[in-house]
């Protein structure tokens, strides 16, 4: 094992995952990709900050519209001062960024707790839903794409592609409503909405509703990937050598398609947290998405900002991990 030029000690676990190919270069790759996320995140924060600083109705005015009578000018001035809303915009932006650099997301207008305390309990339900949806998508989508590609032009192929394009066109919250109607209201097999940390029953319907469009995408990607590999020279050679069809599929095709499929899978997991907002709202799922919708309605800007940052960060981190895994698995990709 060569430790590369920098002399950084390399943990054995790292080698288990990434093999013994120049670990220090891989480390630098990861570090660079991590640093690359910072400007993107900064611009996201800036955009969200600017958007909400021009909001005509402030949180204070939404308090009044809820019937809590805060019309008293003194009360309003006090509230404005308490949340720092009386300071100039640039000062507020600087304060926010300064806090962010110290992992401080500010104070929620609504609950007056630190924003992180509001977001943190929502994280696990959201991640759980995204992973469960992906599990469903992979379980159905990958075999579907595979079967379709093995007999291109057949009835199964045409049917699969119709399912795939339908899945991509389906409004997922409507599909969720239909699932709710059939499996919860009519058959009574599953709870129609809500969350239970200990049981999987509540997870099934929202996960399927959320998983339909990634399932369709996976089916399409897998099919395209398998078709590509099936036409490759090494498969023709193997077939000419007399390798049996099941073995051909298993050891020549499946392995080569795996990289493509895993990439699609990973990228989908990254964007699912953002896509889940409507499903979370529909099923009263206590995740980041429903928190975001509720906070937008209440104009609880610090929480909105925090939730958007979490969603974007999740996307960026998963993307980076996919890139790293890709580079580690496929030696043709240069790690520089």
């Amino acid at each position: 094992m060569k430790a590369g030029g920098t002399g950084v000690p390399v943990a054995p676990a790292f080698n288990l995952v990434f093999g013994e190919r120049q670990p220090s270069r891989m480390m630098r790759f990861i570090l660079r990709r991590t640093l690359q996320m910072i400007p993107t995140l900064l611009v996201v924060v800036l955009i969200i900050f600017v958007i909400f600083s021009v909001v005509p109705g402030s949180f204070i005015s939404s308090l009044m519209s809820e019937g809590r009578n805060a019309t008293n000018a003194d009360v309003m001035a006090h509230l404005n001062q308490q949340f720092g809303l009386d300071k100039p915009l640039l000062v507020r932006l600087w304060d926010y960024l300064w806090g962010l650099a110290h992992f401080d997301l500010g104070i929620s207008y609504r609950t007056r707790e630190p924003v992180w305390n509001v977001i943190e309990p929502r994280l696990w339900p959201s991640i759980k839903l995204a992973l469960a949806a992906m599990f469903f998508a992979a379980l159905v989508g990958i075999p579907l794409g595979f079967v379709a590609a093995l007999k291109p032009g057949s009835v199964i192929d045409t049917g699969t592609m119709m399912v795939a394009i339908s899945g991509l066109s389906l409004p997922e919250f409507w599909f969720g409503l239909l699932l709710m109607y059939v499996f919860a209201l009519q058959l009574g097999w599953l709870p129609s909405f809500g969350y239970n940390a200990d049981s999987f029953q509540h997870l099934i319907l929202p996960a399927i509703a959320l998983g339909v469009s990634p399932m369709a995408l996976l089916a399409r990607t897998t099919r395209a990937g398998v078709l590509d590999v099936m036409n490759a020279d090494f498969v023709r050679t193997a077939r000419a050598k007399g390798v049996s069809e099941p073995r051909l599929v298993r050891s020549h095709v499946a392995r080569n398609v795996l990289v493509l499929v895993l990439t699609t899978l990973g990228l989908q997991v990254g964007s699912l947290m953002g896509q889940a907002i409507v499903i979370e709202k529909l099923f009263s799922w206590p995740g980041i998405g429903s928190l975001l919708v509720d906070s937008v309605a209440a104009r609880d800007i610090p929480v909105v900002q925090g939730a958007v940052i979490v969603i974007v960060l999740w996307f960026l981190v998963i993307n980076m991990l996919v890139d790293v895994a890709y580079a580690a698995v496929d030696p043709r990709i240069k790690v520089t």
Partner: peptide, 11 residues
């Protein structure tokens, strides 16, 4: 990086 639905919701 910002899911378009999230962005649209904010706007």
């Amino acid at each position: 990086a910002i899911p378009s639905l999230v962005f649209a919701l904010a706007i």
